[in-house]
Design a binder for these strands. Sequence first.
DNA 1: GTCTATATATAGATAGAC
DNA 2: GTCTATCTATATATAGAC
Lengths: 208, 208
Amino acid sequence: MGDPGTVAAPRVAQLRPSAAQARIISAALELFARNGVGGTSLQMIADTIGVTKAAVYHQYNTKDEIVLAAAEAELARLEAVIGAAEAEPSRARARKTLVTGMVDLAVAHRRTVSTILNDPVIVRFFAEHESFRHVMDRMSRVLMGDDIGHEARVSTAMLTAAISGTVMHPLVVGLDDETLRSQLQRLAERLLPAMSAKPERSSPATRN
Amino acid sequence: MGDPGTVAAPRVAQLRPSAAQARIISAALELFARNGVGGTSLQMIADTIGVTKAAVYHQYNTKDEIVLAAAEAELARLEAVIGAAEAEPSRARARKTLVTGMVDLAVAHRRTVSTILNDPVIVRFFAEHESFRHVMDRMSRVLMGDDIGHEARVSTAMLTAAISGTVMHPLVVGLDDETLRSQLQRLAERLLPAMSAKPERSSPATRN
DNA sequence: GTCTATATATAGATAGAC
DNA sequence: GTCTATCTATATATAGAC
């Protein structure tokens, strides 16, 4: 992991949003979570922050750009957690750091995280834009290592789906954050793929 | 479980759809999965099945009715699985039957299941309509028993979120159904809440 | 059960003043 | 950075003929 040569992780967001843009993104995220991306209009976003549609269009030229910016804002948080995990000295610690960070993130943003990750429009963005896929690849690598077998794939997919999906499940809406976080983390660790027998080594891993 | 006195489980669907209605529901489910409920118009549904909007409105008076019917159609499948699980003689077998059935269902309908269960519009329907909540309550009871503690709630929420969310995860799109099913079932069992110490009730048991 | 035609509202998006 | 005003397309929904 560590790879001390690497300094700055490639960022998803091109430019950090201005104050006006940040308000749009914040309103959009909340509305997307409540109505879905397709069910959210620019008029709704404008009304939420108390301006007209034209003011919103001054910040973003299309609705797609808003969706993209909102997805980037959410993913930036995940990217930071991944970066911290990659900096850990061992695979085991990297995985634990990542899972803890993902759980914390999901619990702290219960409404948005799950819907954003599952909305079909955003899922399409994820598939189309390389920068998104790159973040997901880094996450998978921390969790799975170089193991790309069936077992590792399914358990990684299940781990991410479980964390993001649980936090807004009707059964847990009444739970306080701390209880949810501790239970979620304990259970998430049960899903971790078995670590490949490969020993921790400092030499470059066998890559293909 | 069993409760031999109970004969017919209360159904979610009021009337079973006609042939024309079934085509609408089928097209709607596919479009909902691809575009979200809010991003799907009646025109899209009409185009998909090759009729005009007016023909669709002849079957359902509003878009909400279509959403409701589509959600009912999906939930009816889950209800059948729950019914089979409830008929099992022991809790352990009931749980295993339910998990197996849920996994089979999710894998067989990879696209629809996840999106339908996570779409914010449908989630709202679930919260508002008692018939939907009743099905979810039955599912929870089979999985958790009478234990409604934090641990059981989180693990149940996680189990359902994990199953439905994994099947359309980018990491598993390339996996064949049989591999996905076996891995998913194996991992799902790791999430099952610990069984409460309450003994197996010896009484009614064996059903038809 | 399906069609044409239409009513009304709102969607995404742009022009130009302040 | 925000506004009013407007364009075009499409949304949900209805009326009535076949």
